[in-house]
């Protein structure tokens, strides 16, 4: 693999990107592009789907088919694409507000249906595009522009949610370790079924500043220090991590994939007709 060969998956004429300095989203996109490169995905047969927010800014700069949809709804569009064209590889980049709040129901049901989609949730713990409001993944007591006295709500373990809903591949990586994250994303693309990868990103502009992190690196270190590598054979989503962040492939199982099941139904009905 040539160094930087992943750049062929970038629309370089659409650069520079518009993320803030120190944002983790570019690192996570880079991890995804490396995974695409290793798998030698055909851009013409690959669709990247996003919705609204900072996570959606991964989209126009990617060199494949790219579709930016309505807030929270990317999984619905992507489901339609995959169901109509099961031969296409469909990747999603969603945000924490986008994917876990307004799009939370779609996440649950796409996971339950086990459609062969790879969803990467870029978790920066905040609504960045709108100026730093708290999201379902903003930790308890952390500050945001709409939780100026500290967040009173509990945050989701969004991987646990995806697993419970039926996702057949669930992983978590961090921007501090992009090579590892890239391997997790690659595994998700290779997996036949609904793959969910949480990528912990950082938002120095809003989350960091409001929560007394002095630099992007400090947020990354904070995450890194708390992260613990786990394995799917031994990890269970209910175990008490005592504040640590489990990182790695968290669960992996082979379940009937929706478009496969649908194809079998069609074959069975059409055979019945001919008989």
């Amino acid at each position: 693999m040539k160094r930087n060969s992943y750049k062929k998956y970038l629309r370089t004429h659409k650069l520079p990107h518009i993320w803030c300095p120190g944002c983790g989203h570019g690192i996570i996109l880079g991890a995804a592009l490396r995974a695409m490169d290793e798998l030698e995905l055909d851009p013409y047969k690959t669709v990247a789907v996003t919705a609204i927010g900072c996570s959606a800014r991964t989209n126009a700069i990617m060199n494949c088919n790219t579709i930016q949809t309505t807030h929270g709804r990317s999984l619905t569009f992507a489901s339609g694409i995959k169901m109509a064209r099961p031969d296409l590889t469909v990747l999603l980049f969603v945000g924490d507000g986008d994917g876990a709040a307004i799009g939370g129901n779609h996440l649950i049901h796409a996971a339950r249906r086990n459609v062969d989609l790879t969803t990467i949730l870029l978790n920066n713990s905040i609504y960045g595009m709108t100026g730093g409001q708290y999201s379902p993944l903003t930790p308890y007591q952390k500050t945001a522009s709409t939780s100026p006295y500290g967040n009173l709500e509990q945050d989701f373990d969004v991987c646990k949610l995806a697993d419970a809903a039926g996702a057949s591949y669930v992983a978590r990586g961090i921007a501090h370790d992009p090579r590892h994250l890239s391997r997790l994303i690659r595994g998700g693309i290779e997996h036949k079924g609904f793959s969910f990868i949480e990528g912990i990103s950082q938002c120095p502009t809003y989350y960091g500043r409001r929560n007394k992190f002095s630099s992007p690196l400090e947020i990354m270190r904070w995450v890194k220090e708390r992260s613990v590598r786990v394995k799917p054979e031994t990890y269970n989503f209910s175990q008490d991590m005592d504040g640590a962040i489990p990182v790695g492939l968290l669960s992996h199982r082979n379940l009937p994939e929706f478009t496969d099941e649908y194809r079998k139904l069609v074959e069975q009905l059409q055979k019945g007709d001919n008989a």
């Binding site: 949809t69 309505t70 709804r73 619905t76 569009f77 992507a78 694409i81 109509a84």
Partner: peptide
């Protein structure tokens, strides 16, 4: 393909996705 989605929003979202495809 017929799919019953989780809500009305998803059903039209998927319809648009399928049409783009």
């Amino acid at each position: 393909v017929f799919v019953q989605f989780e809500d009305e929003i998803a059903s039209i979202g998927a319809v648009i996705g399928a049409s783009v495809a």
